[in-house]
Write a protein that binds this DNA or RNA. Sequence first.
DNA 1: ATGCATTTGTTCGTATGTATC
DNA 2: AGATACATACGAACAAATGCA
Lengths: 250, 250
Amino acid sequence: MGGPRFEPVRAIRAYERVVEQVEGAIESGALCPGQRLPSERELMTQFSVSRSTVREALRVLQARGLVQSRPGDPNGAEVLPFSPAVLHKSMSTLARVAELSLGELVQFRMVLDAAAILLAARLRTDEQLAEMAAAVDRMKGAVEAGGDAFGAADVAFHDAVARASGNKLIQICTDVVRSIVVDLIADKIASAPDREGLMRRSIGHHEEVLAAVRAGDGPLAARRSRESMYDYYADYVKAEERAALKALLE
Amino acid sequence: MGGPRFEPVRAIRAYERVVEQVEGAIESGALCPGQRLPSERELMTQFSVSRSTVREALRVLQARGLVQSRPGDPNGAEVLPFSPAVLHKSMSTLARVAELSLGELVQFRMVLDAAAILLAARLRTDEQLAEMAAAVDRMKGAVEAGGDAFGAADVAFHDAVARASGNKLIQICTDVVRSIVVDLIADKIASAPDREGLMRRSIGHHEEVLAAVRAGDGPLAARRSRESMYDYYADYVKAEERAALKALLE
DNA sequence: ATGCATTTGTTCGTATGTATC
DNA sequence: AGATACATACGAACAAATGCA
């Protein structure tokens, strides 16, 4: 019994090996953001493959957000710093293709934002607290000025909170999911009947959260954050999904 | 003031337009998983571009996990059902390139797993509860049998919980982050001094969580889940990061 | 500011291995 | 087994864009 366990030999495409090598060089740090890859013609001699193969590999690397090539650039493709754009893209298609409901997305935001705020309440610096307060002030100013900059100020607040949480993964994921949710219902928000009232109530919620963060009361800040999010989005969530959201409000 | 706001005209590559059209057809539902794209030669006539351009577009679509092409297949590329593989890939590179620390990953798991368990405690069916109990039983059996199947049973438990949460996004993200964490420290776990003791203590934690789920006490289940995860992973996290983890234990 | 050389974007033709009928 | 259609891969060529002398 037993015998040697042979791996099934799946045909590795030529371009895949090129991708693997370049990807490995980037992830190992041998290639740093800002550095340039050799030109396509140079790469084809180094890997001894054709130009078409090199180009297919470069397209894949570009789709993964690792490199970027511009036409005519004598320096070759540029190695990019990490950006959550690819993560954003794959989560967006996940939301569409895997049929994520708005309720699931909002619920995810309630979980992650509350966690970020709980951590921020305990780990924040005074400077970060000032950023949050400034964002809330800008939200107030936006209401007076007609509400155009309200969304941006709201994003700034949540981003300041996410950064203060000290967890880059939380920061990136909250940002990605927030923008997806906003995309889904931007039109509905814009055409809401009592838009100014919604904004004022949202500001009140944010001030309550901010006060709890200032006081260092993480659990209270988290609870208020969940309530605020529920209050703001519940109307747009299908009725049968609201129960799942309420389950987070204890 | 104000004038017409012109968009910067970025040169759209030919392959990008092919990608956009096919991607749109898939996301709009015009192309369903299992269906086949036209052959490359057919696509080049339909889009009136060359073969290479079609191929580069197909590479990008493949990198995004939307289609898959096999050599010699008379039917052309296959439209794939959504898989979190791309999400997994981009989060993995995020973990490496953006220098996510183990502490951040574990903290993220503590947040998401606790949320999943809180929801599961309130929304689970009896059948799902039985699945969780069965998984814990298998963990026990694995310890007797030498610990080989312990990890798989542990995964099965957390997967059952995530499914019972009713939130596909939570389910996918917990799975992705769990596998990344496990990859990072699989060797350290395997060579732990008192491996059997670790497993037994982990089983005890899982039983406590399961009891709280059975009793429908979500907050208790969530707290026990966070404690369990902290207890299991804290040793592998850098000392200066442990404070951030403890902030979640209130 | 103007060419010039080089690079990428794109096209076309061809050869090869492979899967299906 | 053979024919057909396919994907893979190579190579040569031209246009557009870029950087540099």
